[in-house]
Design a binder for these strands. Structure first.
Lengths: 215, 215
DNA sequence: GGGTGAACATGAAAAGTTCTCATATACTAG
DNA sequence: CTAGTATATGAGAACTTTTCATGTTCACCC
């Protein structure tokens, strides 16, 4: 089974101003991201302040700008980290179910997403880049394509269909799942169960209609 | 056929600070919203500035704060206006196809949405409140429920199902359509045709599976 | 173990935004 | 025509973002 790539993640939208080289600074950058995540959970995205981030992370404002070109880049880095974690989790889960039906794969992936919603600070607010990449920045690229490409590689081995058809269907399925799960969490902080179930139903129904039920 | 309500629109999230009473000021408020829409199209949401809005609208900053409590409220009012226009357009279209199959109704509604994407300034960026209501503000309420409730009333007369089942299915369908059409416009400024077609297919497929094909 | 250059840290202050408010003008009702 | 309310205005108070000159720490080499 092909492994999901190591996610070089976001196509350098607003790259770091400087890559942390020494370990102490790498740790500090992580602290800043953690602080951002916590603050976004507590105050929401637009009450987020660079001063606040710095204070919470226990560093000087200047340190933040040592690595990030601007505030937006901080949030962007946070979403990139979310994306990495997601891809990593999916990869790990895949090892456990080498030869399942793709049906179960859909459940697994959605479950991982649910898990992140519930446990990763800030995730339910920024996901994989809604705020920054989609709403605020110009469009074109989207982080979801990273996920889609990975999943396409993965499924190409199992489904006897032209790979582009596959990618298209997965793009659609991904978008639908994303939207419905967001709705579920909007309705209820822990994720509305009924909507989650429906999300799985819709996605599977769509993929089955497009590819048939065969593994 | 029940008419869609006049949309009292958003549940007073951040109400206007003062309701324009005189006509001149009502007009000014409209100008400010127009300016905001244009600027959002040109610069994106977070480059939006109250000073800029005022300048573009040809008014003093203070005038803006005369009616809006803060910047966010301006964008919120803009989305409310979008929502009103959408509901109005749906209503109008409905008169034309009194007794169509619900199938065609779905097409019509999506077409209206497409039309707005293409013609209403700022719409493709703010839709019915993505940025403000969803991402930045606290959740719970969502403008889509206004639409959903209207459509539910509308369809209740045609489909022989418990109204709550209907509302649930329409909520799901609405969210799916919204997500896919956004994707279509993210991929291509004029709306990727293939994705639009798929959106219609997915929505109809889902509703048909839930309610059967009967009118 | 001392020297050197790059990486890193810092916070005062420059630059830019949001929002207020005292003051002035336009409407509207009577 | 007049009082009373609605509206308009923009300088400036309050707060944010971002820069930068200065000082430290680290990694490496002789």
């Amino acid at each position: 089974m092909s492994d999901i790539q190591a996610a070089k993640v976001p196509a350098e939208a607003t790259p770091l101003r400087r890559q942390p080289v020494q370990q102490r600074s790498a740790k500090r950058v992580e602290q800043m991201l953690d602080a951002s995540a916590a603050l976004i959970d507590e105050l929401g995205y637009d009450a987020l302040t660079t001063t606040l981030i710095a204070k919470r992370a226990g560093v000087a404002v200047g340190s933040l700008y040592q690595f990030f070109p601007d505030k937006r880049a901080v949030v962007q880095a946070l979403t990139a980290r979310n994306l990495e974690r997601f891809v990593a989790a999916v990869n790990e889960r895949l090892k456990e179910l080498e030869s399942e039906h793709w049906w179960d794969l859909v459940d697994s992936i959605l479950d991982i997403y649910l898990e992140m919603h519930r446990t990763v600070p800030g995730f339910s607010k920024v996901h994989f880049g809604d705020i920054i990449d989609r709403q605020l920045l110009d469009e074109t690229r989207d982080n979801n394509t990273v996920i889609v490409d990975s999943l396409t590689d993965l499924l190409a081995a199992r489904v006897d269909r032209p790979v582009e058809d596959l990618r298209f269907a997965i793009t659609i399925a991904n978008e639908v799942a994303d939207a419905l799960l967001k709705l579920a969490f909007r309705r209820e902080p822990s994720g509305d169960e009924k909507i989650v179930a429906e999300a799985k139903y819709v996605v599977k129904g769509y993929l089955a209609a497009r590819f048939g039920e065969r593994s």
